[in-house]
């Protein structure tokens, strides 16, 4: 028989003595020993007051604070993203006035610490006791509560950072896409909304996920204005009962829970937006793409959407 048989015969795999990894075992033993010693000293330390940690872990004030933290994170991120898109489009526009306004905004809000900005908005009443014009004005303090000041400060600050992320995403889209849209007679605004932004999402989503996690932790700065989020409430209880350290551990616990959940969501989202880019079978337009595309066409027969 000269013709090859269609089934290939697999050769027996190599059997060899593996390299000894003595260093690996020694280092693992060392790490375990150090961690065990540390864990023992923490677990048995009277000053940590573990019973207090357990007592306040699900305290209603702590849980309420955690909810406020999540609310502030979600709201300021959503508003910050919208503001960021507007600023990015302004930055890339042909209109020099819009470009300058956007650049000036970024210069101020990225150039001053967010902690200072938070205190600044909270104290707005010191400079402008009343907001509005003439008789149509309201008491500033009645509008800018701690929550309001917090939301304002975080949104305005986040807008500046999101603007740079969105701008990077827009610039990552091939120039040929814009040319093709223009050649079809689409105006600049429509080209941005229908063609460029949906494609920019793939580049925008991963750093935006990081921004959400950062934002969640940044809300702890709001303790300086007593915004009644997680850290404020934990500190309040700690100061009242002289249980500062255990309450810090309670705060850490909830921050870790929340950031872990966000990280999981982020990796899911990233996988979703990466689909189709490397394997040639794009997923249908995602929820975020739909958000920007507005009136999305219904998926045709056999469409993957």
């Amino acid at each position: 028989m000269t013709t090859q048989s269609p089934e290939r015969v697999r050769p027996a795999p190599i059997k060899a003595v593996p390299v000894r990894r003595t260093g690996q075992w020694i280092s693992a033993a060392l790490v375990v020993a150090v961690l065990a010693a540390l864990g023992w000293s923490i677990a048995t330390n009277e000053n940590l007051q573990w019973s207090v940690v357990g007592q306040y872990l699900f305290d209603s004030s702590i849980l309420k604070g955690a909810v406020t933290t999540v609310e502030l994170t979600v709201l300021s991120m959503l508003l910050g993203i919208l503001l960021g898109i507007v600023l990015a489009v302004m930055r890339l526009s042909a209109n020099p006035v819009l470009r300058t306004v956007s650049a000036g905004y970024l210069w101020f809000f990225r150039g001053t610490p967010v902690l200072v900005q938070i205190v600044l908005w909270f104290n707005l009443a010191l400079v402008f006791p009343r907001l509005g014009f003439g008789s149509l004005s309201v008491d500033t303090n009645s509008v800018i509560s701690a929550f309001g000041a917090a939301l304002l400060a975080l949104t305005l600050n986040e807008g500046a950072y999101m603007a740079e992320i969105v701008r990077g995403g827009i610039l990552s889209v091939d120039q040929g896409q814009t040319e093709a849209a223009h050649a079809l007679g689409l105006t600049g605004a429509r080209t941005m909304r229908r063609i460029v932004l949906p494609q920019a999402m793939r580049v925008i989503v991963p750093p935006t996920g990081n921004e959400v996690v950062t934002m969640l932790k940044t809300t702890s700065l709001l303790a300086v204005i007593g915004a009644e989020e997680l850290f404020t409430n934990a500190q309040k209880i700690g100061a009242r009962d002289f249980t500062v350290f255990p309450l810090l551990l309670v705060a850490c616990f909830w921050y870790l829970v929340l950031t872990s959940v966000l990280t999981l969501v982020q990796s899911k989202l990233e996988r979703r937006f990466a689909r189709g880019t490397s394997h040639g079978a794009p997923a249908g337009p995602g929820a975020l793409q739909r958000m920007f595309a507005g009136r999305m066409l219904r998926s045709p027969e056999g469409g993957a959407a």
């Binding site: 091939d174 040929g176 896409q177 040319e179 093709a180 849209a181 079809l184 007679g185 689409l186 429509r190 229908r194 063609i195 949906p198 494609q199 794009p282 337009p285 793409q289 066409l297 998926s299 045709p300 469409g303 993957a304 959407a305």
Partner: peptide, 19 residues
């Protein structure tokens, strides 16, 4: 320069509908 986030049909429909 097809629009990669749209199907072939959506690419063809885009300008008539939008413009």
């Amino acid at each position: 320069n097809l629009f990669p986030h749209m199907t072939a049909l959506e690419n063809v429909m885009e300008a008539p509908v939008q413009v």
